[in-house]
Design a protein around this nucleic acid. Sequence first.
DNA 1: ATAATTATTTAGATTTGTCTAAATTTTTAT
DNA 2: ATAAAAATTTAGACAAATCTAAATAATTAT
Lengths: 222, 222
Amino acid sequence: MTLNISSTEQNYIKAIYHLEQNGRPVNTNDLAAQLATTPASVTDMIKKLKQKKLINYKAYYGCTLTENGRKQSLLIIRRHRLWEYFLSKKLGFNWDAIHEIAEELEHVSNTELINKLDAFLGYPKVDPHGDPIPDANGNIATIEHAVLGGGTLGKRYVVAQIGSQLPAVLELLDQKHIKIGTIIEIKKRFDFDQSLEIKAGNKHITQISKELSQHILVKEHE
Amino acid sequence: MTLNISSTEQNYIKAIYHLEQNGRPVNTNDLAAQLATTPASVTDMIKKLKQKKLINYKAYYGCTLTENGRKQSLLIIRRHRLWEYFLSKKLGFNWDAIHEIAEELEHVSNTELINKLDAFLGYPKVDPHGDPIPDANGNIATIEHAVLGGGTLGKRYVVAQIGSQLPAVLELLDQKHIKIGTIIEIKKRFDFDQSLEIKAGNKHITQISKELSQHILVKEHE
DNA sequence: ATAATTATTTAGATTTGTCTAAATTTTTAT
DNA sequence: ATAAAAATTTAGACAAATCTAAATAATTAT
Ligand SMILES: [Mn+2]
Ligand SMILES: [Mn+2]
Ligand SMILES: [Mn+2]
Ligand SMILES: [Mn+2]
């Protein structure tokens, strides 16, 4: 008998998974903000998730995922990212439109569907935003990329991951010709606001705000 | 402001659309049976659908779709059949497994998603069961195929459509090497039970019960 | 240490979709 | 025409998920 997890519950544990990446137990208000709901609703749902043994929870303290809760979350994230890959690479959607659609598709939880989709896509390792795709057992690669903002003048980097799903961020990156795999050389750093002048793809010179530079995750070139 | 139709409401109007094909207004009990719910629940939902102007309804009489209700139903059926085509032709699912999965996918109602999917699939005209796929405006081709059971001895037919989504039916057809496009010649008709002996695909001789023969829809060969 | 602020939980309602059991209407049979 | 059967609706309850407003606990500032 496999535990049934409603779409709403799925959204909750996925949000808890993401907030847990900050290293602290997830508190009620942050979870409410993330899910665009009220703290009172979160308290209600948290009790239910505890009963289902998907999270650990102590009143007035916060919650963390149980081992099973973490696995279930990663299987949802797997579905989400595989669909994003499909929408981008097969249907031709721009990367700023796929997250929202994948938010719905991720809840169709037929295991064979997802594994066949994975095969059809050629077992991609990362989604169009550079985020790693968990395998069928809920294992995820832990890649720790550096923030472009912290890079060194004159050095060349490769864009590996974007630290945001916001269409506004992705649209801005489009305009600056920055995508996954783009080679970036940091030309200048302006002391006043920590903004950068960069050369993208050996072609385009542009300015990048500090805020934006912190959402561009890179690895060193060569 | 486009009317929001919940997944449950979508299932109801789709069921009404299908039952309406019998030519009579749809009555409460049949709808309850089709949706595996109770007549009382159907009465409740019917009131809601009437308020949303998706159906016409007279108490103790039955309901029919309004023009808009019909269009919305056909857009759901469009999504359902395009996903079935994708599952079959791109992911390699057998035709007896796709209906159930499409029952979930059909509720993801992003118009651009469906139109891009349609393009990706090459604008298919029919789904893997031979059912016509409505276009983006909710127009559907009206194909009237004959039932194999009513065919003439010695004549050759082409399988064009299957009148059932039941895995049991589709599995049986698999076993008899009958699929969409298969050429069938009726060899004998047994008076006792109206069963048929046929040759399928110019190769396989098999017996077909009357019940099964009524679910195989055909057009004449050549 | 006390007060003020912030975070969290509880209480009580609401909406959606469902159900069982009872009442009512319609249809069919005698 | 009346009775029996079948179909449909109503009444009342319930579970899931949500909300607002009020109560309580924890944290922070003075
Ligand atoms: Mn996403
Ligand atoms: Mn992504
Ligand atoms: Mn189907
Ligand atoms: Mn079909």
